[in-house]
Nucleic acid binder design. Structure first.
Lengths: 200, 200
DNA sequence: GCTATTAAGGAACACTTGTTACAGATGTAA
DNA sequence: TTACATCTGTAACAAGTGTTCCTTAATAGC
């Protein structure tokens, strides 16, 4: 009565991961509103009904695409968090960001900025999701800085919340800079200048 | 044969400036794609035909709205350029930006970021316009820094292009920070920290 | 008065939007 | 083979998209 996957009936005939990857890439490039279901069917190579059966509606698919993006692509911050010292962390944060933004075969922006900044009321859930992710990233950054403060690496005179927002501001700015068309070399130099002004 | 305005026939019965102002505000909030003609007719209080007769199609109207935005709202950079010294200029640039982003009665973002970052191929002209404006702003900033370099205010060791991109990065980052929902106080402190790290 | 010219209001346009219904295909389990 | 369950492909859906057409209204000059 049940197959190996615990399901009976006709099995799926396409690679779900590959399809979601394709969806992620157009959403990344065109944002939630700029991507139509027609675009998605073409890029994923699937019929609407297959998409709906496998992933749900457009909002649900977008959420899954963003989740995939965060887990597989936007690891530049997570990787940096693994660094042992504060200095190594901050250096890695900036360098990873530049490397990420200039990786070929995907848009030169953070998906959370291309996804939906200004949008219709209909797309508000998508925008809220983007904002929330940006805030979560900021929380993770803050916790790393708090740890550095406790270890004495970050001077007590520095306000952790301010420092968090400041670093976050520069990282976001780099993403815009990349979206404007800055080259890898330019981004690197910008990041280096930021590091120098931070004292690193 | 001709009226005072050089036109015969029935005169326009609405305030063109007020209508364009209304259009600008929704475009600002929802971006090009997120704003429908139905939204525009409602916000502007006009019929489609009146909009088309007075401003052209949606793309043309968006261009006019952006032009108005640049000329009347986004003057924070232009005003700063009038400052006499480099230090005064940079301080004004940051302070004006924060003041602008936290002005009530309009969205807490730069219109060029909300307008269209990720978008459909159909909206590409709008996105290109946004990118071009951001680049133009950067050119104006660069020229001010070049002047400071010549006057000796900006040390020759500092690469003007790099410094331009660096300042531009922080300004753009502040806009994202504001869009995330940062308060005026938070933005002020972030800008102050940026200034301090710049040596001001 | 009349005529010319332009704007206003609203219906209608062809097309696209996201979503679903349905018939047929394709598999598993007995 | 038969029964069952699920996926696939296509067509259709209602609602929304940007845009245009057309009738009516309002003004200017004769």
């Amino acid at each position: 009565m049940k197959t190996a996957n615990g399901k009976t009936g006709r099995p799926i005939s396409f690679d779900k991961d590959a399809a979601l990857e394709a969806a992620m890439l157009i959403f990344w490039e065109r944002g939630f509103e700029g991507t139509s279901m027609a675009d998605l069917t073409q890029a994923m190579g699937l019929n609407p009904s297959s998409i709906y059966a496998a992933f749900g509606d457009k909002h649900a698919l977008f959420q899954l695409a963003v989740k995939r993006y965060m887990g597989l692509r936007a690891q530049y911050a997570v990787k940096a968090l693994e660094e042992s010292t504060l200095e190594r962390f901050i250096r890695a944060l900036f360098n990873n960001t530049v490397a990420f933004l200039t990786t070929p075969n995907h848009p030169p922006t953070c998906m959370t900025l291309a996804g939906a900044v200004g949008c219709s009321v209909d797309a508000k859930p998508a925008r809220d999701l983007m904002t929330e992710i940006r805030k979560q990233n900021q929380v993770a950054l803050r916790e790393r800085l708090l740890k550095a403060r406790k270890s004495g690496e970050l001077p007590k005179e520095i306000n952790v919340d301010d420092y968090t927002r400041y670093l976050s501001t520069i990282i976001a700015g780099l993403s815009i800079q990349a979206a404007n068309g800055s080259t890898k070399a330019e981004l690197k130099r910008t990041a280096q200048m930021a590091l120098r002004h931070l004292g690193y």
